[in-house]
């Protein structure tokens, strides 16, 4: 699972088997009452196993749409995309990914452990295995002791952690996260970012992470995809030179600030095109 060197040197991984997501000339046009809206245009991108890729850009740049295309929640109108070498639909049917939405979206009538067990129930895991996996993933997101609580009894940050546990419970190799910490305050967000990195290091998953926060993108990612709107497209792909071990105060180092600067430049360039 250690694809580390490949990630650092190649935007596109050399071994085809190692590619988790591969998009070629991908486009998606929504037909609305106000005419067609080009949400994605000519996106070429691949994500290798073990990468942490952030998608950043202003609203309307198609970052969420791209994630939803990977998840087979939207269907592209042009180009091709494969997930684990399959079509997104096949990948979804094979339960290849866990998806974390902007809101926690926990079922209010289920306790935290029952919420985390939801995908396991649907996928037909045995009762014993469900119990074991729920305990393990809740431990992974530091929610042990809150099994019997209902969602409303937890803070927003804890609810989002529970939703991450729910996405992790069935051990998909790919984690798709759509601005999961967008609605949380700065302190909670820092804390969850740190925990997410630790979790990623422990589980060797591939993570695609949508955000509109530059520090968050730089802090978390091995690669940052900068996107711009009208039409939604990729304007820059930035490899992060930061080490895999990242304490929170890495955000004060010159390397970090330099990457952040490049991302900001990329976002500005995208806007200047308008």
């Amino acid at each position: 699972m250690n694809a580390e060197p490949a990630i650092r040197q190649h935007a596109i991984s050399p071994q085809p088997g190692q590619k988790v997501v591969e998009a070629r000339g991908l486009g998606l046009t929504f037909h609305t009452n106000d005419g067609p809206v080009q949400a994605l245009s000519n996106v070429d991108l691949s994500v290798a196993r073990g990468e942490f890729v952030s998608f950043i850009g202003p609203s309307g740049c198609g970052k969420t749409t791209f994630l939803r295309v990977i998840a087979d929640l939207e269907q592209p109108t042009e180009g091709a995309i494969s997930v684990n070498g399959m079509s997104p639909e096949e990948a979804r049917r094979a339960r290849a990914y866990g998806y974390v939405f902007q809101a926690a979206g926990l079922f209010p009538w289920r306790t935290i452990e029952k919420n985390v067990a939801l995908p396991l129930e649907i996928m037909g895991y045995s009762r014993a295995e469900r119990r074991e996996r729920v305990a393990r993933t809740l431990d992974l997101v530091n929610l042990t002791g809150f099994e019997r609580k209902f969602p409303w009894q937890l803070s927003g940050g804890m609810q989002q952690r529970a939703s991450i546990a729910r996405a992790l419970a069935f051990d998909a190799d790919l984690l798709l996260m759509d601005e999961p910490f967008g609605a949380l305050d700065e302190i909670v967000r820092d804390h969850l970012n740190e925990q997410l990195l630790q979790l990623w290091a422990r589980t060797t998953k591939t993570i695609c992470f949508v955000t509109h926060s530059i520090p968050e993108a730089v802090y978390l990612s091995t690669r940052i995809v900068v996107m711009s709107p009208r039409p939604g497209r990729v304007t820059d792909v930035i490899e992060s030179p930061l080490p895999k071990e990242r304490p929170l105060d890495i955000r004060e180092t010159p390397e970090f600030l330099e990457v952040a600067h490049r991302v900001r430049e990329g976002l500005r360039a995208g806007h200047a095109d308008d």
């Binding site: 998840a71 979804r92 339960r95 990914y97 998806y99 939405f101 809101a103 979206g105 079922f107 649907i122």
Partner: peptide, 11 residues
Amino acid sequence: IQLDLMRTYNA
């Protein structure tokens, strides 16, 4: 998002 979630589980 709850309906999307069920779809991601292929429910």
